[in-house]
Write a protein that binds this DNA or RNA. Sequence first.
DNA 1: CTCATCATATGACCCGGATCATACCTGAGT
DNA 2: ACTCAGGTATGATCCGGGTCATATGATGAG
Lengths: 222, 222
Amino acid sequence: MRSGDGVDLTEAEFFRALSASQLARIASQVIEKPFARGRVLFFEGQPAEYLWAIRRGAVRQYKGSADGHVTTLEVLGPGEIFGAVSALEEGNYPASAEGVSEGVAWCLKRNAFLKMLAEEPWLTVEVLRVVSHRLHDARERVRSFAHDPAPTRLAQALMRATRDGEARVTRRDLAEAAGTTVETAIRVLRNFERDQIIEGKVGRVRVLDEPALSEIAGSSRS
Amino acid sequence: MRSGDGVDLTEAEFFRALSASQLARIASQVIEKPFARGRVLFFEGQPAEYLWAIRRGAVRQYKGSADGHVTTLEVLGPGEIFGAVSALEEGNYPASAEGVSEGVAWCLKRNAFLKMLAEEPWLTVEVLRVVSHRLHDARERVRSFAHDPAPTRLAQALMRATRDGEARVTRRDLAEAAGTTVETAIRVLRNFERDQIIEGKVGRVRVLDEPALSEIAGSSRS
DNA sequence: CTCATCATATGACCCGGATCATACCTGAGT
DNA sequence: ACTCAGGTATGATCCGGGTCATATGATGAG
């Protein structure tokens, strides 16, 4: 909506570690791709062509299952990079990516990215930092998905999606992030609403009682 | 059992990327810690003191939940490193580690590890490679835990644990790796046994029909 | 050899949540 | 204004699998 919403390339993960001269050199090779809500940036299994970074808006990475279920792995916002690992290694995206809102992404050709890393190996530390953090998150989610009940996982997903007390997500978005169904997401959110914890609207959720939500997200409930 | 079971330091992740001179220099700082089955190497939340590598045997990383459930995140074998991310970053282990079998681990002090990385930044690529692979696995497990039924997850856990047609694991081990309960693991494995897919013993499982098991592990079952 | 401990095994029960069906609401496009 | 797709809502039903109880077989320590 408001246009000053995004970040500068110098603030983005990886790029912010570049010196001014390096950045100047690489900036010309970075192209911008606007995307709409729901627009797929790449599909799982496609050869990794770019390193991506988000200038404005949000992108989710997700995986589909054989039975038609979709699971959101992570939702990324301005300044966050993705596709780095695949660009670095095997050459195939391990998950699909699509716009959660409209926005703009930066793309850096795989080769340019690799060349930069070869020239300045310590830049790898920056990438490693990002990947490490994602690994930490993914593991925590494995633990949560292993035993936590749906309300707990939905509370977590809701909290992750909340900015300034409000989350711009549909019940389906939350269901796919929490590994459950739309119907369950709706029912659970209605209960939260009954308990004055949230206020539900179409396409968004307002958090009224953040501590209570946090309590539910923190597992171990009766 | 047989003593030639382990690997050499030059074959271990990270260390194998070192030059002969670097290895010689660091080898004196690497200490060996034998461990028994079930012996905890470190607990979640403790300050990360070492970079670990496995010389012989197997180690699992796991997380506990408030409700007492334990979830195995990954099982590592000879040559594989762990604790690297925590040694590199925050300074706290994000998960606990314990011996799955008896064995021997190498430990390199955090500072020595960081010093080596600072001297030879491209070594970070080696670490990044490892972490990337773990991230890929963790995400796939998030997807699986989100929707796959218990038999599918148990088949996956069983296949991961199998070496040469046999897995040296208890039903509890499999349950914790698959995010289910011991009772369910037992029942499901009994069904596999009824279907001539496996042969169950105490503390180990022999795989008779690997294709059938693979089929079940591949999600989408009726 | 004996005992304590853990692994395996099985039945009974129940509940969370998936599935299926249906309906209303809301916003965007023609 | 009308239509239509997607979001929200709710009930009915069913079942996978968690929980509890109990029993026996294997194993290692003393």
